[in-house]
Design a protein around this nucleic acid. Structure first.
Lengths: 160, 160
DNA sequence: CTAGAACTTCAAGTAAACTTGAAGTCAAGA
DNA sequence: TCTTGACTTCAAGTTTACTTGAAGTTCTAG
């Protein structure tokens, strides 16, 4: 570790990579997308505040439930600018976004129930099967990869 | 509809598009990827058997639970070649793949439970939070978009 | 002070799942 | 027959989320 001398005041990109398991290239990419930020040494190398680890971990956790980086950036924008977010800040973020996450999870469960009953019964009848006629989300939105459940955070007006 | 004369024996690509809600470009793409097939008229236009609608609907349903087209192609390969699949064929497909789907759903539920407890409590503590240290699937697999839960069908040996 | 690891930027590549556009052909009604 | 809409192919573009490579700079241990 290069930061032993620094008395753990800041972390190099390599430190963050090791601690989070995220490649340095991905960390630079996240910074470019304004998901994380860094200071620079006189020699132009990145130095991260310690809370970046929590941020990055949050990013990965959110990605796992199917959120895009854009959506995650929207969530992280709720955190205070300038100072390191504390426990209350994180809790507030969680509170604000919980309804949306709940909705997302519910949609996922509906989907699961429909799929297991439909594929289980083997009916696959177009006019009767709920699977076919339910929630066209994530379809016909242009090119690019399809994501699970296409509703964007805006649809729920979380910000009000 | 152009097929009124044909006495519903076969469908044009436009018919299939209208009935499934899938763009014609997507249907051609699926054919190119061997997910569906078609016959040709003397004038080189595609004509589809009626069971293609069920196939396409299945593809979309499977996509909604997060399967890739490659995975779906693997599932459809279980259907008989040459003749139109009947109810038993679909049921057999469902039977073979159900354990895998169940596993996938269970993983999704684990994830949900961890997320809701973690983001709800606001702890987000690196060493304590289960969210951070659980199932690194779908991470660090190379470039391209990340998908929810990265296990491939092969991992479960469905074919045995 | 020097070797080597770690860092820097920037451009280009990759994967999935399609769409879009160009340029032309086919089919069916008036 | 003509027109119009639906069809054909093929190449290239799009989005997300990164990685890879080249070419050079900085940091730190010895």
């Amino acid at each position: 570790m290069q930061t032993t001398r620094w008395q753990k005041t800041s972390l190099t990109i390599g430190d963050v990579a090791r601690r989070t398991g995220i490649a340095t290239s991905a960390l630079r990419f996240y910074e470019q997308k304004a998901l994380i930020e860094s200071l620079r040494t006189p020699g132009n190398q990145r130095r991260y505040a310690r809370d970046v680890i929590r941020r990055v971990s949050f990013i990965r956790a959110a990605q796992r439930v199917g959120l895009t980086l854009e959506e995650i950036r929207g969530m992280l924008d709720d955190l205070p600018a300038g100072r390191a977010p504390n426990r209350e800040d994180w809790q507030e973020l969680a509170r604000r976004w919980r309804p949306w996450l709940d909705e997302r999870i519910a949609a996922l469960e509906r989907l699961r129930d429909q799929l297991s009953s439909c594929i289980g019964c083997g009916c696959l009848s177009l006019d009767r099967c709920a699977l076919y006629n339910s929630g066209d989300a994530a379809g016909s939105l242009g090119p690019g990869p399809r994501f699970l459940l296409g509703d964007s955070p805006k649809d729920l007006e979380v910000r009000n």
